[in-house]
Simulated scan of single mutants.
Amino acid sequence: MRLTSSSVSRRLPFLDDISFEAARGIVGLLGPNGSGKSTLLRTLAGLDRPDTGQVLIDGAPMPRRTFARHVATVMQHTPDEVDMTVGDVVQLGRIPHRPRLSPTTTADAAHVAEALSKVDLPGWEHRAWSSLSGGERQRVAIARALAQDPEVLLLDEPTNHLDIRHRFALLETLSNMPVTVVAALHDLDLAAQYCTQVVLLTEGRVVATGPSSSVLTPARIAEVFGVTAQVTTDAAGRPRILLSCG
């Protein structure tokens, strides 16, 4: 899969000359605040239009309804007060797969149940959305995306609001799924452990892209983030990153 967008701006350019290829696994979009991670995700999701260039999936633009069946998106902000159950919210992910105005099916219900189990919320279909904590809402939003059965998942800070256990559990689940995940992340250590590829951004441009071991070096982390990094390898052979301000 190739994801490409050349330039996005409102009054001043936010992104410029962005191009990268993403295979199955987790592709981490990394960079300091204001580097363009969320804008890039919104562009890939079709929520922002590039001034020049285009987004290509498998080398070609994709019609909107086809795009909705193949690409699922979870952005940072979810509605606060919605008179819906958890099951209703997750069922929204099945809409691209149903004829218009058709009722939900037993197959849809099975997809919903499976998606909730993947985010460690089995049997929560009848819970009220308004009763959930921020972390629970985040997990339900991800379940809605998973129920869509996408080939590509676009996630903006998917570990936001999650406790430590569920951060690891979510990334473990995503890394074992047969999908391409493009996720904006702040935690460099988690990204180093779980991302098969990282795209490092600063000021709307790609600084480097490739495996985390080759991109997230102490020198590059110091240059882009302004912090000191100690990069090691854990017992499983995964990179680990310890950061300090000194």
Rank of each mutant, 00 (worst) to 15 (best):
S175I: 05
V215Q: 02
G34Q: 07
D149R: 15
S19W: 12
D51T: 15
V140H: 00
E125F: 03
A169Y: 08
C195W: 08
V86A: 08
G28Q: 02
M1W: 03
H161F: 00
G34S: 10
T52Y: 08
L146I: 05
D234A: 08
R69Q: 08
L92N: 04
R65M: 12
V55F: 09
G135R: 05
A229K: 10
G53S: 10
H70R: 12
D163R: 11
S117T: 11
T202P: 04
P32K: 09
P32H: 13
K37D: 04
A115W: 07
V71N: 00
A235R: 14
R238I: 06
V181F: 01
L216H: 09
L116D: 03
M84R: 13
V182I: 13
L40K: 01
G46W: 09
S102R: 15
E125C: 00
A107F: 15
F225I: 04
A184Y: 02
A141G: 06
R64V: 11
T105I: 12
D187L: 05
A229Y: 05
L188Y: 06
L154D: 01
L132Q: 05
T105S: 14
M1D: 03
L116W: 04
T232F: 11
V112M: 09
W129H: 09
M1P: 00
A23C: 02
C195V: 07
R69C: 00
A109T: 15
L153P: 01
R98N: 13
W129C: 06
W124H: 11
P32T: 12
Q54H: 15
A145L: 02
D83I: 14
G93P: 03
G246Y: 02
R127V: 12
W129A: 04
A109C: 13
L101G: 01
V181H: 01
P211M: 09
M177W: 01
L47P: 00
R238A: 14
Q197F: 12
T39H: 01
R64Y: 06
S131P: 02
C195R: 06
M177Q: 11
V227K: 08
L116H: 00
L170T: 03
D187P: 04
V199T: 04
S214H: 15
R139C: 04
D187Y: 05
L155D: 00
V179Y: 05
R167D: 07
R42Q: 10
S212W: 10
L44W: 00
M84I: 08
A192C: 09
S175Y: 03
R127S: 11
A72N: 01
T85H: 13
A235H: 06
C245D: 14
P79F: 11
S19N: 14
A128E: 15
E157Q: 07
V231S: 09
S19E: 11
L56W: 11
M75K: 00
L56P: 00
R98E: 05
T232Y: 07
E21L: 01
S38A: 05
S133W: 09
S133A: 10
V89A: 07
L3S: 06
T52I: 13
S38D: 03
A113M: 12
L243G: 12
S38R: 05
G246T: 09
V224I: 14
